[in-house]
Each structure stands twice: as structure tokens, then as C-alpha cells.
């Protein structure tokens, strides 16, 4: 089992990946405890709209006079939550689907993979837009009818996580299937089968431990793409809505007020830096993990 520690040693030598990891930890900590450290009044709308950055409001204020630093931190919470939870859903679906297809093989496999091909051909985000605007009011009404009034405000988050997770698993399924297909024919799996181990045991003890590296790599790379998709939906007005905030929503607000003669640059620049650096760090970390787990792919 000495092999399992090797990737971490390699990862620790990769400077870009380690810097990215600390940036991500910093963003996560700031998002969790940051809003509690700021004055409580920052969350409320005031008359001081469009104040440029100052000592009191380091990131300035927005259209409704809310402190932008507070909004960016709140946005970080929700964007990260949706990104991680959505990626986890897609991870669960993609791994299961790919494993079943690869393990069973034959006609089941080709049928399942043909379905993936068809789903690839459909413009995903276009359907997400339609799906979310159809499902959200229904869930909202159901929650209100069943005494979950307090959850109504968060129904958008549930729906975003579920829908994004349900549409992001295709690549994961393909990759896992490919891995299972190649693992299945290796000696240790054939040996396990020959001594009569159950399918369940083979999957849990022999296949999964060998898949986990690849799966983690693509999980890391799925998080930024879910965050991007969420921001796309929020930008078009079907994602997160005020008073909640996500980076996409903040950027959409900024794009709306920036067209006139006045350039309220801080509304755009600070959320963009927050989102850009997080996504950049996630991509670097994903690349670093891939190099660490699979040095042959290294270029």
C-alpha cells in the first residue's frame, strides 16, 4: 500500500497546485466566517448606493446600498456550496453509471453509452433553463403547502444542485467506464473472479480503490464547471435571486448598471476577482492532481 501515498508526495512538490490549495482554503474560510465578522448592518439595504470603495466599505456598495464585500462573501458561500454539492451529485451518478456499464459490458454497455452520446448532443444549458423555470415554482408551491415555509427561499439552491448534478455526469461516466473496462481484464481482477469472489466484493475491494484517484481528479475539475454553469443561469435570471447572492448574480447586477455613462467598476471587478481566482485555483489543482495520480499523462 506504499503506492497510495506517492500521489500526495508528488502533489506536494507541485508549487502551482499547493498555492491553489491554499487560495481555496482561504476562500472557503473567508466565506464561512467572514460574513459573521462584518458589522451586521452591512447586509441591509441603505440609501448609500454606488459608494466607491472606502475604508468603511472596502469593496464599495451596490445599487441598494448594500456592502459589496458582504455580498461577495455571501456569494462565495452559495457558489461554493452549489459547485461542491452539484459536483458531488454528478460524481455519484457518473461513477455508478460508468461502473455498471463497464462492469457488465456487452450489449448493456453499448446501450448505456449510446444514451450518453445522445445526451451529449443536446444543448445542456438550454434545457437547464427550461427545466429550472418549470420545476422551481412547483417545488416552491409544494414547500409552502406542507409547512416548510422557511425553506422556500432556498428551493432554488436545491433545484440548482439537483439539475446541475443531473446534467454534469456524462464525462465522468465515460471516464469511469473506460477505467473499469481496462481494470476488468487485469490479472488481479481475473484472479479474484476465479477464486469465486462475489461481484459486490470485486467492485468494492478491487475496482473502487483503483478508480478513486481518477474520480477525485475529475471531481475537482467538475466543481469549476458547475460554478460556471450556476453563474450562467443566475446571469440570465433563473438562478439564485436576491437577497441571496452568488457570484453570477453579482456579476449580472454589475453588467446591468455598467452600460450607462457611469462606470461603477468595483461592482464588476471584485466579484470577478473572487470568482476568477477560485476557478483558476480549482483548475490548477485539478491539473496538479491529474499529474500526481497519472504521471504518464504528464506533458
Amino acid at each position: 500500500m506504499a503506492n497510495t501515498r506517492l500521489p500526495w508526495v508528488r502533489l506536494r512538490r507541485n508549487r502551482a497546485a499547493m498555492v491553489s490549495l491554499s487560495v481555496l482554503l482561504l476562500v472557503a474560510v473567508a466565506a464561512t466566517i467572514g460574513p459573521h465578522l462584518l458589522p451586521a448592518a452591512d447586509a441591509n439595504a441603505t440609501r448609500n448606493s454606488f459608494l466607491p470603495p472606502s475604508w468603511l466599505h472596502p469593496f464599495g456598495t451596490d445599487l441598494n446600498g448594500r456592502d459589496l464585500l458582504y455580498r461577495v462573501l455571501l456569494g462565495a458561500q452559495i457558489s461554493l456550496l452549489v459547485g461542491i454539492a452539484g459536483a458531488a451529485v454528478s460524481f455519484a451518478i457518473g461513477t455508478t453509471y460508468g461502473m455498471i456499464a463497464g462492469y457488465l459490458g456487452g450489449s448493456v454497455d453499448s446501450l448505456m453509452m449510446r444514451l450518453v452520446d445522445i445526451l451529449y448532443a443536446i444543448p445542456r444549458l438550454i434545457f437547464l433553463l427550461i427545466l429550472i423555470s418549470a420545476v422551481d415554482p412547483i417545488l416552491r408551491a409544494n414547500l409552502a403547502a406542507h409547512d416548510f415555509q422557511s425553506l422556500v427561499g432556498y428551493s432554488k439552491i436545491f433545484i440548482l444542485v439537483a439539475c446541475l448534478g443531473f446534467t454534469e455526469w456524462l464525462t465522468m461516466a465515460r471516464i469511469i467506464r473506460g477505467q473499469v473496462l481496462s481494470l476488468k481484464s487485469q490479472e488481479f481482477v481475473v484472479a479474484a473472479r476465479s477464486i469465486g469472489q462475489s461481484h459486490w466484493n470485486i467492485i468494492w475491494q478491487h475496482l473502487l480503490p483503483n478508480l478513486i484517484g481518477v474520480a477525485i481528479v475529475y471531481l475537482t475539475l467538475t466543481v469549476p464547471s458547475v460554478i460556471l454553469d450556476e453563474s450562467f443561469l443566475s446571469f440570465l435570471g433563473v438562478g439564485i435571486q436576491a437577497p441571496l447572492a452568488s457570484w453570477g448574480l453579482l456579476l449580472s447586477d454589475a453588467a446591468q448598471v455598467i452600460n450607462p455613462i457611469k462606470g461603477y467598476w468595483w461592482l464588476l471587478v471584485f466579484p470577478a476577482i473572487a470568482m476568477g481566482s477560485t476557478l483558476l485555483a480549482l483548475n490548477f489543482l485539478g491539473d496538479g492532481l491529474r499529474d500526481a495520480f497519472d504521471p504518464r499523462q504528464r506533458k
Partner: peptide
């Protein structure tokens, strides 16, 4: 790749 088009566009 990391910046969405609605950041690049307004910038």
C-alpha cells in the same frame, strides 16, 4: 477559461 463571458464582456 476561468473567467465567464459575462466578466470578459463588461470588462
Amino acid at each position: 477559461i476561468s473567467l465567464p463571458s459575462f466578466v470578459i464582456g463588461p470588462l
